[in-house]
Design a protein around this nucleic acid. Structure first.
Length: 331
DNA sequence: AACTCAATCAACCGCCAGGTA
DNA sequence: CTACCTGGCGGTTGATTGAGT
């Protein structure tokens, strides 16, 4: 079956929009909303296809769009999010109010990419570039760039889309529980135990370890989505002789990278955990954890700016082992 | 002033997922 | 189950702009 064209292109206008066309589109959407995009150009009196109208509106005419250069904090957030989720421009844009995926994509391709290269960071892997790569000639740079792209394509082929292509929900399923007296306070961080916690998280989840946390309700999909976009955080907080006590919470940073509330003290009082030693333990074990994660077929390890982040898929064996400690809806 | 070249970014294209008949 | 439609996404293109010569 041949592919259906998005619209009947005969007689339709292409190319840059005129002020008059913009005015017609804005007037129509302001008065009636967009509804079915295919109908918009007909009803608004435009010789454009619906797709073109949608793009013009979302990328340029929408009233809530921000104008001007991206701020330093926005740029930093883009880099962080790109390190975590790659070229998922719409998801990245969702974390930057008033910015569009197109704008961020362009900004990345024309500015951040080169800036990172100049800083000696590979914009694809976010790892340091080798000296040879940094000192290469323009021709070599071009080749390297092509290699980057091939690498990225290969990466995408090798790693089925962790965020949406497998059709599963992109939420963390573990929910925070009330403090429990039978949990042994964690004194020495145990990476092996922690790894098991990562593995119980749902498919396509992104989890990061961080001492700076804020609890959110995992049943609130908006909150979880926000948390996910900024890097959902899960905490291992205790263990028992019989296995991992998989109490955990979700956390979220606000959109400008600030931390909501005073999570460290909240966390300490709520869960009775020495976070100082916990996070120190994380640092100490980061290298071995990285090596450990690399061996897992369904996990990917990212280390950026002091945050250790793991993309994990569910591991049935671990789920089974942790079964007694999880609520029914977490399985 | 005229030309070249690189940077920028709006817009297009093809593909995909989800919904529906 | 299949075909089709629609909206959305990410990659790419090409017109425009501005700096350099």
């Amino acid at each position: 079956m041949g592919r259906q064209p998005c619209c009947d292109k005969v007689g339709l206008k292409k190319g840059p929009w005129t002020a008059e066309e913009d005015r017609k589109l804005v007037n129509f959407i302001t008065m009636h909303g967009h509804g079915c995009w295919r109908e918009v150009p007909k009803l608004a009196g435009l010789l454009r296809c619906g797709k073109s109208c949608r793009l013009r509106w979302t990328n340029y005419l929408r009233p809530d769009l921000k104008r001007g250069l991206l701020s330093e904090s926005e740029e930093k957030l883009i880099i962080d999010l790109h390190a975590a989720i790659g070229n998922r421009w719409s998801r990245i844009a969702a974390q930057l109010p008033g910015r569009t995926d197109n704008e961020i994509k362009n900004y990345w391709n024309t500015r951040i990419k080169e800036k990172l290269r100049q800083m000696g960071i590979d914009p694809v892997t976010h790892k340091p570039l080798s000296q040879m790569q940094m000192q290469s000639s323009p021709t070599q740079s071009l080749l390297l760039q092509e290699n980057d792209e091939q690498q990225q394509q290969q990466q995408q082929q090798n790693e089925p889309d962790q965020n949406h292509s497998n059709g599963s929900a992109e939420t963390l399923v573990l929910t925070a529980r009330e403090p429990n007296d039978d949990i042994e306070p964690l004194e020495n961080f145990n990476m092996e135990d922690s790894m098991q916690l990562f593995n119980v998280c749902s498919p396509t989840s992104v989890i990061s370890l961080s001492g700076r946390t804020e609890e959110v309700d995992s049943d609130d999909s908006d909150q979880v989505s926000k948390s996910f976009g900024n890097g959902g955080h899960a905490q291992y907080i205790g263990r028992e002789s019989s296995g991992v006590k998989a109490e955990c919470g979700l956390s979220v940073w606000d959109q400008m990278g600030g931390v909501l509330g005073d999570p460290l003290s909240d966390y300490n009082s709520q869960w009775n955990v020495d976070l100082e030693s916990w996070t120190a333990g994380l640092d100490a074990h980061a290298a071995s954890a990285s090596a450990w994660i690399q061996q897992l077929p369904d996990c990917q390890w990212n280390d950026f700016q002091g945050d250790f982040e793991i993309c994990s898929k569910s591991c049935p064996e671990t789920l089974q082992r942790l079964g007694p400690f999880l609520d029914d809806d977490e399985m």
